[in-house]
Each structure stands twice: as structure tokens, then as C-alpha cells.
């Protein structure tokens, strides 16, 4: 469905050091330096996938989204989405996609949300019957009922984001690009947005590509992640594979009936110890967690066992470090 091959994009950025003299000098002869936003980026995405597109700030996430939504033309490389070249067949192509820029609104600020939706209906030439159907579905699932008659500028961020997402789905797009859809939202709104994304992916087979800095988004939504750093793809694949590759340690916490001295184990270091609780960090390359637990249960009278793996954030940080981004 989406095929991206060898995308490269270079921007010219004006450079200057600080200071008044420097500001004046660069006014007359600006110095430019080149920033490689994308270098040879390739991937393909199938229909119905949810892909998390992650990377640090300035890695090239937004540039990729802009190329894929027809806003930017790359210097090199090919991109074919549903048989269209986004920047060449812009008008025909963009009918099939919805784009949400989390930090910028697409709604008209001073009029009720409903008015914005109706204008979008006309922009996308949506048939009245289809419009009613999508609107009913969106109103119900995103719980928009009362806020449709409120002017956009009076909405809270969470309410606004729900409306933004609804607005980008009125024309029933096949692909949805979400650029940081949960930025700044409270926990409740985040969960609502995630559930909705899951729902439309499942019910309507909408392919979703989302960028985010919130690893919970990725963990609950995306089966597949593409990680980009300094314009290059660092990882493309399953979240579990990433874990397998990078999770080297797990923590095992055990509660037990009183024991007087700390128990040392092979291939596991004791992180903390008290009379009735101990925490071990297990090197899983050397020894399985179940093995550790069985040894513990043989020696102690266990009442509770908990196993935690590293949070995904730390894995990502490791990956960044490995690639020095």
C-alpha cells in the first residue's frame, strides 16, 4: 500500500553565531549549511497496519510525514502510496488520506466545530448520506455530542484533539497520518484517543502511521515501529523483537516469610534486601528467570513473585546510544 524507497532530502539552513556584529554580518552575507533531513529512507507498509514512527526531535519524522502527505518533494527517491506519487498527484491523492498535526489546528477557531465539519464536507465533496454516517459514528465513538456546537477556541486541548481526529476522518480516508496526536493531553484523553485509533484501524481497516514521543502510545497501539535518527532508519520491525534484542536484564522481586540474611544467587545481583522482600537483577543471557525463581522457592518460603522487564523508553535510549543520535 505504501512504498517508500531511497528518500533523501536536504535543507539549507541559515547559520550564524550569537552576537550583534554577527547578526549584522549574516544579514548582508548569510551563511548556509546543509542539513540532511532524510538519507536514503526506505520502508513499505501494508494495508491495515498501525506503524509507530519514532525518533528524537529533529530526526526527520515530520519531514517523512510531509513527503508522504504531498507537502514536500524529496531531492531523491521514490514514494508510491495507493498507486499515487503524493507530490505529483497531490489533489487526487490527498482525498485518500487524513492528516492530524497535533500541534496545529485544522479547525476554524471562531465558529462551532460543526461548521468546520460542514466546510470540510464540502472541501472533500463528501456525499450527504456518507457524511451523516461518518459524523454519527465519529460523534458516538469520540463522544463529541455536546462539544459540536462549541466554538473551537473554547475547547479544552483534549476536546480539541478529539475534534481534530474526527475532522481528518470525515472523508473516510484509507490512510491516517497522526503527527504527535497525544501531545499535551491528560491521561484520560490519551486513553480515549488511543482506543479510538485502535477501533478505526480494526473496524474500517484504516492504515495508521503515527509519530509520538509517548512510548505508551507505541506500546498500546503499534505492532510495528520504525525508528529514525539523523535522517536514517535505525530499526524497522516488531516491538517484541526489539525487546528481545535489547532487553538483557529483568528484575525479580520476591516476598517471603521472614529470613534473616540476604541470599546471593548466581548470575543475578541483589538490588535491595529486607527481612521479607528482596529484589534481584537477572542477566537473562546467562540464566533464565524461571530458573532463578525455582532456586528461590527451594530456599525460601515465597509469598509473592513479580517480574519486570525494562520499560520501552530505556530500550529506545539504548538504541539511540548505540547509533549515537
Amino acid at each position: 500500500m505504501i512504498k517508500v524507497e531511497g528518500l533523501s532530502k536536504t535543507f539549507k539552513v541559515a547559520r550564524r553565531s550569537s552576537g550583534f556584529g554577527e547578526a549584522v554580518r549574516s544579514f548582508f552575507s548569510p551563511k548556509f549549511s546543509e542539513v540532511h533531513a532524510l538519507r536514503d529512507v526506505s520502508f513499505s507498509i501494508d494495508e491495515g497496519e498501525i506503524v509507530g514512527y519514532i525518533g528524537p526531535n529533529g530526526a526527520g519524522k515530520s519531514t517523512t510525514i510531509k513527503v508522504m502527505s504531498g507537502i514536500l518533494v524529496p531531492d531523491k527517491g521514490e514514494c508510491s502510496i495507493m498507486g499515487y506519487v503524493p507530490w505529483r498527484d497531490r489533489v487526487k491523492y490527498v482525498k485518500n488520506i487524513g492528516v492530524v498535526f497535533g500541534q496545529r489546528s485544522q479547525l476554524w477557531a471562531d465558529v462551532p466545530v460543526m461548521d468546520s465539519f460542514e466546510l470540510l464536507r464540502d472541501i472533500y465533496k463528501v456525499q450527504p448520506a456518507n457524511y451523516k454516517k461518518s459524523l454519527d459514528l465519529l460523534t458516538e465513538t469520540l463522544n463529541l455530542g455536546e462539544i459540536l456546537t462549541t466554538p473551537t477556541r473554547q475547547l479544552s486541548l483534549g476536546q480539541r484533539m478529539r475534534c481534530e481526529i474526527a475532522a481528518s476522518l470525515i472523508h473516510d480516508p484509507k490512510i491516517l497520518f497522526l503527527d504527535e496526536p497525544t501531545i499535551g493531553l491528560d491521561a484520560m484523553s490519551k486513553i480515549a484517543v488511543r482506543n479510538f485509533i485502535k477501533m478505526i484501524n480494526k473496524e474500517k481497516k484504516v492504515t495508521v502511521i503515527l509519530t509520538t514521543h509517548d512510548m505508551n502510545d507505541i506500546e498500546t497501539l503499534a505492532n510495528r515501529i520504525i525508528m529514525i535518527g539523523k535522517g536514517q532508519i535505525l530499526y524497522d520491525g516488531n516491538l517484541n523483537n526489539l525487546r528481545e534484542k535489547f532487553v538483557t536484564h529483568k528484575t525479580v522481586t520476591v516476598d517471603y516469610n521472614e529470613n534473616t540474611s540476604p541470599l546471593e544467587l548466581d548470575s543475578a545481583s541483589l538490588l535491595s534486601w529486607s527481612k521479607d522482600r528482596a529484589t534481584y537483577v537477572v542477566d537473562i543471557k546467562k540464566r533464565g528467570v524461571s530458573d532463578i525463581i525455582s532456586e528461590l522457592s527451594a530456599k525460601l518460603e515465597l509469598t509473592d513473585v513479580a517480574v519486570d522487564s525494562e520499560p520501552i523508553e530505556e530500550i529506545i535510549i539504548k538504541l539511540y546510544k548505540e547509533h549515537q543520535v
Binding site: 497531490r90 489533489v91 488520506i97 496545529r104 485544522q106 472533500y124
Partner: peptide, 10 residues
């Protein structure tokens, strides 16, 4: 960047 928004409309 409102112009970006215009570009993603058909």
C-alpha cells in the same frame, strides 16, 4: 505553516 494544511486538502 497553515499552508501545509491547505496542501493536504484536495
Amino acid at each position: 505553516a497553515g499552508f501545509d494544511r491547505l496542501l493536504v486538502r484536495p
